[in-house]
Amino acid sequence: MTPITTFFRNLESKCCAACGQTMVEQAESYMTECFACQEKATHDAYLYYHTKK
């Protein structure tokens, strides 16, 4: 059985699902998008919601 520290040390870097940039979050994090892409999506959603008529 592989020690847990070896398992996490050998995981590949996480990449953002939107832009492909390498993420620095922990490997076990559930995030799939980097902070910049999350911020852009939030901003776009805000603008869409507040400009609807």
Results as ranks from 00 to 15, higher is better:
L47H: 14
E33N: 07
C37R: 00
E12C: 06
F7S: 08
Q26F: 04
A17V: 04
T6E: 14
I4R: 12
Y30L: 08
E12V: 04
K53Y: 04
K53I: 06
C15D: 01
T32A: 04
A41I: 03
C15N: 02
D44E: 15
A17L: 09
T22G: 05
A27R: 06
M1S: 15
K52G: 07
M1G: 15
C19N: 08
T51L: 09
A45C: 07
F7K: 13
Y30R: 10
A27G: 09
E25A: 08
R9K: 15
C37Q: 01
D44Q: 11
V24H: 14
K53E: 11
F7W: 12
T22L: 05
T32C: 02
R9F: 07
I4F: 14
C34R: 00
E25R: 03
T2I: 11
K40H: 09
E33I: 02
F8D: 05
S29K: 01
Y48R: 15
E25K: 03
K52E: 12
C16S: 02
F8S: 07
T42Y: 11
K52C: 08
M31S: 11
C19S: 09
V24E: 12
M1D: 14
T42L: 11
S13Q: 07
L11K: 10
I4M: 14
P3F: 09
T42H: 15
C15P: 02
F8G: 02
V24I: 11
Q21R: 08
M31D: 07
F7Q: 08
H43G: 09
C37H: 01
F35R: 05
T22R: 06
G20S: 04
K14N: 03
E25L: 03
F35C: 06
R9G: 10
K40P: 01
M23W: 02
Q21M: 11
D44N: 12
S13R: 03
N10H: 10
R9M: 07
D44A: 11
A45G: 12
H50T: 14
A18Q: 07
A41C: 05
D44L: 07
C15W: 00
R9P: 01
Q38D: 04
I4H: 13
T5L: 09
Y48H: 15
M31P: 00
A18K: 02
Q38M: 07
C16E: 00
C34T: 00
N10S: 12
T51R: 13
K40Y: 07
T42S: 13
A45I: 06
A17M: 05
T2Q: 15
F35M: 04
T42V: 10
T51D: 13
G20W: 00
C19Q: 07
Y46C: 08
Y49L: 10
L47R: 10
T42A: 15
K14L: 03
F35S: 09
A27S: 13
H50S: 11
A41N: 14
